[in-house]
Design a protein around this nucleic acid. Sequence first.
DNA 1: CTGAAAGCGCTTACAG
DNA 2: CTGAAAGCGCTTACAG
Lengths: 337, 337
Amino acid sequence: MSKKSKNPTSNDVARLAGVSQATVSRVLSGKGYTKEETKQKVMDAIEQLNYRPNAYARTLNNSRANLIGILLPSANYPIYLELLNHLVQACKHKGYSALLIPGELNEEENYSITNLLQYKVDGIITASAHHKTNLYYECNLLGLPVVQVMRVDVDSDCSYAASDNFGAGELAASEMLKRNGQDFLYITGHLPSKTNDDRFNGFATEVENELGHRPESLVTHFDYEACKSLIRKRVKQKGVPDSVLCATDVIAYAFMDVVRFEFGYRVPEDIQVIGYDDLEQSSWSGYKLTSFRQNIKRLSNEAVALLEQQINGQTDRVFNINVSAKLIERETLREAT
Amino acid sequence: MSKKSKNPTSNDVARLAGVSQATVSRVLSGKGYTKEETKQKVMDAIEQLNYRPNAYARTLNNSRANLIGILLPSANYPIYLELLNHLVQACKHKGYSALLIPGELNEEENYSITNLLQYKVDGIITASAHHKTNLYYECNLLGLPVVQVMRVDVDSDCSYAASDNFGAGELAASEMLKRNGQDFLYITGHLPSKTNDDRFNGFATEVENELGHRPESLVTHFDYEACKSLIRKRVKQKGVPDSVLCATDVIAYAFMDVVRFEFGYRVPEDIQVIGYDDLEQSSWSGYKLTSFRQNIKRLSNEAVALLEQQINGQTDRVFNINVSAKLIERETLREAT
DNA sequence: CTGAAAGCGCTTACAG
DNA sequence: CTGAAAGCGCTTACAG
């Protein structure tokens, strides 16, 4: 490991190129005019010294860091990784770097946001699952733009890019109604969100239109085992419905595993099931689950675009973008009648 | 959205508190002495103005950004999220923030590293899966510390914190030998790594000691479907072994699904199987897979600690830390004889 | 087209 | 214990 020697500065480059430091800056920023020849000399010197401009010094003048803070849920749910990758790509595409905000934000973690603000991120993108945070409040206080992506908090009034959950709920209901569904149930996890409410409302509205009453929403848990035991309890008490929409694929797996292996029902003959998120394993032999696939790339791009608008002060309005999710049909829906 | 007004600076604080700007700096850094009373006045002013020190200005003096760059594989493999979360926590714990380096590094993406270097990260932690990168070369050139975590490249000579893959391979072999395994096979994906070589070598060495010959290593694919079709081909050509170690749990699922559902073998009666990574679903009804669980939290802590040592110039040596992985026994191993 | 100089918001000797 | 001043590495009017 070679000793970290002092990094070359624009002054070093200027000296080597025989120009002023201001000229080096101009060549690099592309602002102002420079003779082609001068430009070349500077580029050569940069090459020779392996010079990299110091982004912090630049930031000091611009008061813009080109940094976006990202706040992710802490759960190890696979699509969060996909989301993160797309977000980082989208940031990069727009010339921003992505700073990860550690952990979920909650009462104890308010330290995080304070800490974060030192870095003067230009804005924050959050998909966090804990709305008991004063994130929105603090950011608003500081005039720091925030955009939610994929997962939307119940009481937030900040912009978001999310899937069209209401539409997905409606579509799920209507597909199962078409297949002679009579007894509907929505199963979700334990963390409340607008995302979830929307999906349930779409589902319930469609069912109500057709059948005259709203279906029930069963609150379980996002964890597979915890979810299974709550479903087991419910099935013992009230039997099974014949058409189920689940808030995540994992919940759908839990449901299927309980009703098929513990109670002997058949899917889809006795019960049809639709999941949400289309995890990789939904296509595997064990489940063949019909599920909604979110357009994560587009969600990421929209979120970053929304944030950029706010950063550039182009808007004061709250934008809610709903991107439709696609129903991937496999083998957990009956034949249409 | 309130208009982003100019952030207050230490000068504003100084003015309000009626002290010099240098004093504000001292109070905040805790360096040098300050009268309790002065300290209080400064703190009050900070509170009142909602002041947050500008990390970039600080960095300019320190030439240390307290930033660590993180380079993750782009695959949506769930444990990478867990790794990321632990890494970010570990960074935070040591006073660093985590900057995500976008995408995998490869020839086209060299842009990334150049781009990254502007931010003067103090060091880089990588779990990337593409070793065809000049990351190590570039960083060495610049004297920028790099540490690998979890996944180790074949030809890199930089420090790492990884699981004891050799030990895991050995243990897997010995457990299956104890259970009367006769015909051994190792199945891996398509990306070469030292991590993988070590695991195979541990496995092969133990088998060779006992049985007098090294087992075969079957190179497939990390993707479930692709992996299945390669396994199918192999089974058709050469039949099945009776003891299998897989490089990931997903590979183990693919193997089990092919041999059980397409060829009618029983697990573990005909074939015993061990996976690696202990994904959540390995405990579910479909697989009940015996698998190695990596100590991701400890890997993360060790990696950050290694990096910190290098950043502080406390060492020029290359350290390789191996953390043992724990075998979680479920139902894919026969009874011991 | 280019240079000299001021300034971004901090830290840190140096005096006192 | 505290203030005045120089400096970190850039950008950007201002002259020329």
